[in-house]
Amino acid sequence: MALDQSFVGRTYPPSRPYEVGREKIREFAEAIGDDNPAYRDAEAAKALGHPDVIAPPTFVFSVSYQEAESVVRDPKLGLDYARVVHRDQQFAYHRPVRAGDVLSVTSTIESIKSLAGNEVLDIRGEVQDAEGQPVVTVHTKLVARAVEAGGTGGAGEAAEGE
């Protein structure tokens, strides 16, 4: 069943603020095995012109996705969350995320398209700091796969995206 096109352009109010912690950045950097000093050492970050340690580029996804998820789970939209996979991810950085940032995200449904029975949902997240200045624009494209006739044949593709 096609999703309701009237949801295109709908904006979901800003999230609860997310405070970016220095130790959370370090934990994330260690999890991806990245020893860049700009993620750990405030002096090294300052030498590059940043006011404090910065976060790896994809760190902000953890913040923005919480919001995108609440859009996807909006019962009025009627998406079957169990069939949703991640298809595309894009970031446009106004500046790097850094320790001490208090971020909030406003999510908008940019488009809903049907492709061979799959629903493709493009969600834009505008991440801003406590002063209301833009930090990152995040585009997340999710696909809800068509319900297949019988079996779990599509499940392999299901996880292709993720």
Binding site: D34, A38, Y39, L48, G49, P57, Y93, R95, E162
Partner: peptide, 18 residues
Amino acid sequence: TDWTGDPGALLEYGVRFT
């Protein structure tokens, strides 16, 4: 980011999960 040294030099980044 290892090439540029400064991760802040990355302005845009996008992928498709295939």
